[in-house]
Amino acid sequence: MCCSVGFARSLGLALVPLSLCCIVANLLLLFPMGEVTYLQQGRLATFIWYFGGLGGGGLLMLIPAVVFITLGKCSCCWNESLMMCGSVLAAVVGLVGSAYCFVISGFALMQGPPCFTSFGWSNPFADQGGRYLLQPETWSRCLQPVHIVEWNVTLLCVLLGLAVLEFIICLLQLGNGLVNAVCRPCCYKQEYSLNA
């Protein structure tokens, strides 16, 4: 059988924990240092509200995960070519979701977190183009929330890494689905000639 359904299912199983980790990381960004106060006061970075991890890398990624895992299990409902088209479309959805997560996390990382400095509440790193990431000695400018820069940098880097892994997995399934869509007719011709 040309179609590697087992390969697609293993990719789907790999996507589930990645998407759940994206959701958790995005939720943690909403509660700096585990506190609700800054969420209630609206003191979070703008890009956090775009929900790159919750939406793109999380909930949206569950669509291809479910499709890949259930591939071939419902043969009564799907013929094999439709099944492969479904997996290719699901892979495209996954690529879009992971790309969205990556872009939003990247912009949030470049912008830096808003925090309370000696000049009041501001976003002291917004105009630096991400240079603050290479200057950890400047992070102490943020007095509250304590260690907010480390919190944001860590979680956003985790989201970036997870988004890259999700993108690679969906790209693998996209290739798998397209190759099998092309190879399947050849397999049928070979089977027909052997049976004849």
Results as ranks from 00 to 15, higher is better:
residue 108 A to I: 06
residue 119 F to Q: 13
residue 164 V to N: 13
residue 31 F to E: 01
residue 175 G to T: 06
residue 147 H to C: 05
residue 179 V to S: 12
residue 109 L to A: 06
residue 129 G to D: 08
residue 10 S to K: 12
residue 3 C to E: 14
residue 112 G to C: 07
residue 43 R to C: 13
residue 104 I to P: 07
residue 49 W to D: 10
residue 160 L to K: 12
residue 90 A to R: 01
residue 112 G to H: 02
residue 159 L to F: 03
residue 119 F to S: 08
residue 179 V to H: 07
residue 5 V to Q: 02
residue 51 F to S: 09
residue 124 P to R: 03
residue 58 G to H: 04
residue 158 V to I: 15
residue 149 V to M: 03
residue 62 L to F: 07
residue 106 G to M: 09
residue 17 P to S: 08
residue 74 C to I: 04
residue 134 L to T: 06
residue 62 L to D: 02
residue 107 F to H: 10
residue 172 L to K: 03
residue 165 L to F: 13
residue 10 S to F: 03
residue 80 E to N: 06
residue 38 Y to M: 11
residue 179 V to Y: 15
residue 27 L to Q: 15
residue 98 S to L: 08
residue 8 A to K: 10
residue 41 Q to G: 08
residue 41 Q to V: 05
residue 177 G to Q: 02
residue 15 L to Y: 05
residue 187 C to K: 14
residue 23 I to N: 13
residue 171 L to S: 07
residue 111 Q to D: 09
residue 125 F to Y: 12
residue 154 T to H: 15
residue 4 S to N: 12
residue 34 G to D: 14
residue 196 A to Y: 11
residue 138 T to E: 13
residue 184 R to I: 02
residue 56 G to A: 12
residue 53 G to K: 11
residue 83 M to F: 01
residue 7 F to G: 06
residue 74 C to V: 01
residue 28 L to T: 14
residue 133 L to T: 00
residue 54 L to E: 13
residue 75 S to P: 02
residue 78 W to N: 11
residue 135 Q to T: 01
residue 71 L to S: 15
residue 27 L to R: 15
residue 11 L to H: 02
residue 45 A to E: 15
residue 25 A to N: 14
residue 75 S to H: 04
residue 133 L to A: 00
residue 131 R to T: 03
residue 86 G to L: 05
residue 27 L to T: 15
residue 84 M to Q: 12
residue 100 Y to Q: 09
residue 16 V to P: 08
residue 35 E to L: 11
residue 178 L to D: 03
residue 152 N to P: 01
residue 188 Y to C: 08
residue 67 V to A: 13
residue 186 C to P: 08
residue 75 S to Y: 01
residue 6 G to V: 00
residue 132 Y to E: 07
residue 83 M to H: 07
residue 118 S to N: 11
residue 120 G to N: 13
residue 81 S to A: 00
residue 13 L to P: 05
residue 166 E to M: 13
residue 85 C to V: 07
residue 162 L to C: 14
residue 8 A to Y: 01
residue 80 E to M: 09
residue 171 L to D: 11
residue 59 L to F: 15
residue 196 A to C: 14
residue 108 A to V: 08
residue 31 F to V: 09
residue 189 K to G: 08
residue 123 N to I: 05
residue 82 L to E: 04
residue 136 P to R: 01
residue 105 S to M: 08
residue 83 M to G: 02
residue 135 Q to W: 06
residue 15 L to T: 02
